[in-house]
Design a protein around this nucleic acid. Structure first.
Lengths: 335, 335
DNA sequence: GCCAATATTGTTAGCGTTAACAGAGACGCC
DNA sequence: GGCGTCTCTGTTAACGCTAACAATATTGGC
């Protein structure tokens, strides 16, 4: 290991210039003669020189790294977001450092943020979809660019979020439009903002149609909990339409209905949320709501870069609209 | 943003010691008087001092960061691996920097590695499950600790991998044990080692039973390709058992079979691979093979840390055995 | 061909940390 | 009591880079 690569001075010596000129070439500084630039580039290539990010970070006070704090990066949503964020960041020349957290409480989040700060990240993206994270975010150091994704809409922190309410409203409305008398909802955990937003959207759509929302079936995002709720729904003959807070819940519901001999969409229509890649191959293919994770990633990175460059804090807010993807799990009710 | 936090000298001044003593306290150096240590700690706390990782990385030549190069972190396998890796790394005091790559070819991988190297990461984990990555890995700089996960078994590079062959053999054997005359296989893309290993295991099990493997059905991991293969399989009356290279392929197969009126497991048994969380809620619940991603993550990090500490290169190799998870998608064939 | 303006390059001084060495007490042993 | 040996602490010099300034070409206008 021992041997370190060549440093800027080595390149400079080989190219017959000062290290500062090398630095200028590297940073695309304008006033460098073309001929010199080429000589330097050749020297860089010949030595296989690689700039030392640590040294640069030390002197500029910022590294070209963006820290991400997230909880469960195995879930489809967070995973997609992280991947999209990383893609986008790479295009802008930034690396992404992940700080997974077991719980999204104050301590855990602060600790993750501290870790990022001691590496002098240029900015931080917090994927903080739950209640308990909110408080932590306000107490965070104000001197680092920060953006939250799917966080608490009521906090004065820069926020990018999928419009859960609109998505849920669209899903519910879609079922009502198909002719259903009412729509049941299997929700996510109540401390997730995503959950709350989807519940709100569902409720709004029903109220707007002059309907009284039926009791909520609370789930926890997992297919297992969807299955349990599905078993209950299957036993209630009046149920003809179900909107689930994500596709995995829908999968569980579908299986429960199947076991109880209920046919989808003939007996009961189902709409999910997320549009996981497999949703098109559920039995039957699932009508669902697709959030645009790329757009969210782009928006949050953009917001972060703006802060980084301008130095402005500012509590911006941006919302990305999801789209309804119509497949075969919805049909008019049989009378 | 402007304002930088306190530096080590500030802490030193407040504690009435030299900055070097502060450094010693921070790094747990033995020869510091207890009283001094406490005074320093108090000063650190009072100022909210945070060590500057960049400066440390500059002087030591290594940061407390581990770089991960991966392709599609949205897929269940890579995502789980990444999450597990991050968890484990955090416990050891390391941050994880992700370098996603669009393609796993030489150029892309090298570029990602270069990015990590210029940040002077302590080590690199390459999740390189495809053929085209192999070459790139051998050309990589030898002076940085590196471990590959699910890489090319034939290359002289430290490697941690799930025992694909054993997993596939177990899956196939499980179907044969149930009484099936032969087992068909829907595979992953042929340039993935995971794929190749699973094909080998399937073939081995059949050959060991004195059977001639039926033609391979090539898929690409997606439910869509599983669906296409499933449509073909459903038309062939002699097919009674299918082993798919992952659970999403299985999902596609299940749906195709369902559409063709084939019942699982009554008419055809299906076994998947991965044990995605939803597999237990497929229709019917899927028998599958579960790789232990945590174990893989632990093993690779361990291997990496060993290299980091000892400075030894060494082409170690470690294999993690997967386990068969039996559910309802397998039954004896009807005669 | 001369001067000012401009383009290009070089020099110097840190950034905040660790490593290597040096110094100052305290202790024990002959 | 002198001296080697610890234990603890301080001093100095890098690490590789960028920013600020200084110095040196080069250019254009007359």
């Amino acid at each position: 290991m021992a041997v370190h690569g060549p440093a800027m001075t080595d390149v400079a010596r080989l190219a017959g210039v000062s290290h500062q000129t090398v630095s200028r070439v590297l940073n695309g500084h304008p006033n460098v003669r073309e001929q010199t630039r080429l000589r330097v580039r050749a020297a860089i290539a010949e030595l296989g020189y690689r700039p030392n990010g640590a040294a640069r970070a030390l002197v500029t006070g910022r590294s070209q790294v963006i820290g991400v704090v997230a909880q469960n990066t195995t879930l489809y949503g967070p995973a997609s977001l992280l991947a999209a964020l990383e893609q986008t960041a790479a295009e802008e020349g930034f690396a992404v450092s992940v700080g997974s957290v077991r719980n999204l409480d104050h301590r855990s989040i602060s600790a993750a943020v501290e870790r990022h700060l001691s590496h002098r990240v240029a900015g931080i993206v917090v994927i903080a979809p739950v209640e308990s994270a909110g408080e932590a975010l306000e107490r965070l150091p104000k001197d680092v660019p920060l953006v939250t994704v799917d966080g608490d809409p009521s906090r004065p922190v820069p926020l990018v979020t999928v419009d859960q309410v609109a998505g849920a409203r669209a899903a519910t409305q879609h079922l009502l439009d198909a002719g259903h008398r009412t729509v049941w909802h299997v929700s996510g955990p109540s401390d997730w903002f995503d959950s709350v937003g989807r519940i709100d959207g569902w409720r709004e759509a029903l109220l707007a149609a002059g309907l009284v929302p039926p009791p909520l079936m609370p789930g926890d995002w997992s297919a297992a909990s969807g299955y349990r709720c599905g078993q209950m729904l299957a036993r209630m003959p009046e149920v003809t339409a179900v909107f689930t807070a994500n596709d995995h819940l829908a999968l569980g519901v579908l299986r429960a209905l199947h076991e109880f001999g209920k046919r989808v969409p003939d007996d009961i229509s189902v709409v999910g949320f997320d549009d996981v890649p497999e949703a098109a191959y559920f039995i039957p293919p699932l009508t669902t709501v697709r959030p645009d994770f790329d757009a969210v990633a782009r928006a949050s990175l953009q917001m972060l870069l703006t802060q980084i460059e301008s130095g402005t804090g500012g509590a911006l807010r941006q919302t990305v609209a999801p789209t309804l993807v119509s497949r075969e799990s919805v049909a008019p009710p049989r009378r």
